[in-house]
Design a protein around this nucleic acid. Structure first.
Lengths: 229, 229
DNA sequence: TGAATAGTGTCTTTCAGACAATATGCC
DNA sequence: GGCATATTGTCTGAAAGACACTATTCA
């Protein structure tokens, strides 16, 4: 913010052409399907990294907040608007984009798979969900961004209810536990999990049950509030 | 990263002139002196916010990493190079700078007061340390940045040893506790504090002691490693 | 009644927090 | 001895983790 004389002089010496960096917003969009944690990727149609998979993103518009830019991108790709979205980190190494200096403010989001819009409507973009454990080679530093997002997501589980975004309105405790297990990539003890979750006092018991197969049906729960962070 | 047709079109409609945002790095520099948590501020000598206090910062140079830019700013202001420095958050509301769109990647740092360079050598900048509890009115959204930095610092205390940056190489447990108390802004129980800190196994007992007044001298400790996060 | 999942309780360990007496050094 | 700070341990309550049996539904 403060314009230091020293800075300006150095810039002019190092780089006579005034070159301002571009700023983009990129989003790691997570969902869960078939017991796998998935990330949304888009195949690039232009250089650099033509035909390489990348996380969705784009330049910020002049009058828009960073968070709004992220929401916009998110909506373009998934059709979803209300969900968990949080700033992750800003990546700005000078060589992360071979063309020119591009600084990206990375966000991550959680989307319930069944709220997604039918895939890729009008635009011809190639879009796909990939298992985080089995990602293709990615453009730019997007691999790093995803792995940092994944770490952050894991640590968020401990002290927040973000994960509720990944579930339908009503769900069983087993389904909830499954989501935790998929994200953390390890098994949890059923009794301890239920004890902990219920003691958080975020869940509301409905009087419905869910039958799935020839066995005892499970109670359905919902969230008390829509707070999600 | 991905250049979406939709995005480009919208930008052209909303704003025919291509206007790229500027990117700065701003730093909240904390230190402790006389039992107070201080923040370094600089009085602006240009508009906007001429003569208003602000946290130090500046434009990033074309070939420099974000972290390096923060280090450079930090060194310019404090003369200190090796310390705790961490990215805090990126602030980019379109109206945070009245001139034009400026996005700032905020960092925060901890500096031991006695490693600081003698204040403001050659440059005529007006620089000063302020108690975080008694800050003047600040330029831009710098108040918000500082308060977020302060929150982050508090929560970092629980699970890291960042605070060790604020102490000389060798220090007593009472001094260490004082630093915690100043940052958290509350008293801690001496026995519980010592129990917890020592159980972290980060401290090395030296065989020196420190006399200060007419009473029992205290053992000096140092850190086992230079890891600081 | 068999198959399949839902649902539940106890014990142990660990950690945080409340709380007060003794030790050491110098005047 | 007096003063001032350093140093130390116990108890209690809460939370996390290990661990196994009963309940319910339908074929």
């Amino acid at each position: 913010m403060v314009e230091s004389k020293i800075t300006v002089e150095k810039r002019e010496i190092d780089n006579p052409v005034i070159e301002t960096p571009s700023v983009t917003v990129d989003i790691v969009i997570f969902t869960i399907k078939d017991d796998e944690l998935l990330v949304l990727l888009i195949k690039r149609k232009a250089n650099p990294y033509m035909d390489t998979w990348a996380i969705p993103g784009g330049f910020i518009q002049v009058r828009e907040k960073l968070h709004e830019a992220a929401l916009r991108e998110l909506k373009e790709e998934t059709g979803v608007q209300n969900l968990f979205l949080e700033q992750l980190y800003t990546f700005g190494n000078p060589d992360r984009d071979p063309r020119k200096r591009v600084i990206t403010v990375a966000y991550y989001a959680l989307v319930s798979y069944d709220r997604l819009k039918p895939k890729a409507g009008c635009d011809a973009k190639e879009v796909n969900w990939f298992n985080v454990k089995d990602l293709p080679s990615l453009a730019f530093d997007h691999s790093e961004i995803i792995s940092i997002a994944q770490e952050r997501l894991c640590s968020k589980l401990d002290y927040s209810n973000v994960v509720f975004q990944l579930l339908p309105k009503e769900f069983t405790l087993t389904e909830l536990q499954k989501v935790y297990e998929i994200i953390l990539d390890r098994k949890l003890d059923k009794r301890n999990f239920r004890k902990r979750i219920l003691s958080m006092n975020l869940l509301k018991e409905t009087n419905k049950t869910k039958m799935e197969g020839y066995h005892r049906p499970a109670k359905l729960y919902s969230f008390k509030e829509d707070l999600h962070n």
